[in-house]
Design a protein around this nucleic acid. Structure first.
Length: 172
DNA sequence: CCCTGATTCGC
DNA sequence: GCGAATCAGG
């Protein structure tokens, strides 16, 4: 080959990985979380990429949950049925994110309204998540066991710490 | 208004 | 191929 590149060999071993982008591990996590029933936002937050990146990759992999929102919304509507605690993916995602994995025997306890208590009954280790509307006669608090230093239980803590679109990154 | 997912389109 | 921008539904 008479042609030689003056810019050394690009195909050789790169000194830096630069943009790892979607590696096999990421894709595996993506699939796992996706099949686990996590939303794109949650998957994105867990992997560390933007929500659009997750959706884009999923679409590229031909992995869509229900073509459009039709099936998805239908499934969601049928899901909330009385009887089973069900514990949506909120708990799963949180535990997986916080504790890494470590199959915790769910000591934290899911969001249970059976432990609800009044304001006077609240303690340092009790979830202070408000139930119903403040002022209502049935107003109370979650009352579940809250992790040390946290005002809410695991389930509600996650809801309280939602990275909203309003929270822009401070720069400049 | 908020959220969700899916497609489009420029890089 | 990648992801932000944009669109579309609830």
């Amino acid at each position: 080959m008479p042609v030689l590149s003056p810019t050394s060999s690009p195909t050789a071993s790169s000194p830096t990985a630069s943009s790892p982008t979607w590696t096999n591990e990421r894709i595996e996590l993506l699939k796992q979380h996706f099949e686990a029933g996590l939303t794109c936002s949650e998957i994105a937050a867990d992997i560390g990429v933007s929500r659009n990146a997750v959706i884009g990759k999923l679409s590229r992999l031909n992995l869509t949950r229900g073509r459009t929102s039709d099936e998805r919304k239908l499934e969601r509507s049928l899901a909330p049925r009385r009887g089973t605690r069900a514990v949506p993916r909120l708990q799963y995602e949180m535990l997986a994110t916080i504790y890494g994995d470590t199959d915790t025997p769910v000591v934290a306890g899911p969001i249970d309204d059976a432990n609800r208590c009044s304001l006077l009954e609240l303690s340092e280790n009790r979830c202070r998540w408000p139930i119903s509307t403040p002022g209502a006669d049935d107003f109370c608090f979650c009352g579940n066991t809250a992790p040390d230093g946290q005002p809410y239980c695991v389930g509600h803590s996650r809801l309280a710490y939602r990275p909203n679109s309003r929270a822009r990154v401070m720069r400049g």
